[in-house]
């Protein structure tokens, strides 16, 4: 029963933050600020959704059902690691590409990278 509550809370947090990330993408004014919203919130939200699945699998294993549920938890954990690493690196790649393709952060109070390039 405790496991069920934890699962619900994790799923709720995950969906909430994913929704905030999507809202941020729609609301923010330029690429860089959108990337802020995208990377942080969707990674965090998906980590919590994965945690819900891991807890579900772990609870089933505790109840004595081994085999597929153990595999479910472990594989979800691997997916979580892959996602956390690739999302941050991908965001970095997009930001760099946006800057190289001539997009200036707007609005911005300072841009040191542009100064170095010039």
């Amino acid at each position: 029963m405790i496991a069920d509550t934890i699962i619900m809370v994790c799923l709720g947090i995950g969906l909430l933050f994913n929704a905030l990330g999507v809202l941020g993408i729609l609301r923010f004014p330029d690429v860089y600020t959108r990337l802020h919203a995208e990377t942080k919130t969707t990674t965090f939200g998906t980590i919590f959704i994965s945690l819900a699945v891991i807890v579900y699998g772990a609870a089933r294993v505790m109840e004595g059902e081994t085999g597929t549920y153990l595999t479910l938890s472990v594989h979800t954990f691997v997916a979580l690691l892959a996602l956390a690493f690739t999302n941050a690196t991908g965001a970095h790649a997009i930001a760099r590409a946006a800057h190289r393709s001539g997009q200036v952060p707007k609005p911005a109070v300072v841009d040191r990278l542009q100064e170095v390039r010039e």
């Binding site: 993408i25 690429v31 959108r34 990337l35 969707t42 998906t46 997009i94 946006a98 997009q103």
Partner: peptide
């Protein structure tokens, strides 16, 4: 712009 679309695509992937 194109980078905006890539950001959206990345979100869809996640």
């Amino acid at each position: 712009t194109a980078p905006d679309r890539v950001v959206a695509l990345d979100t869809v992937n996640t």
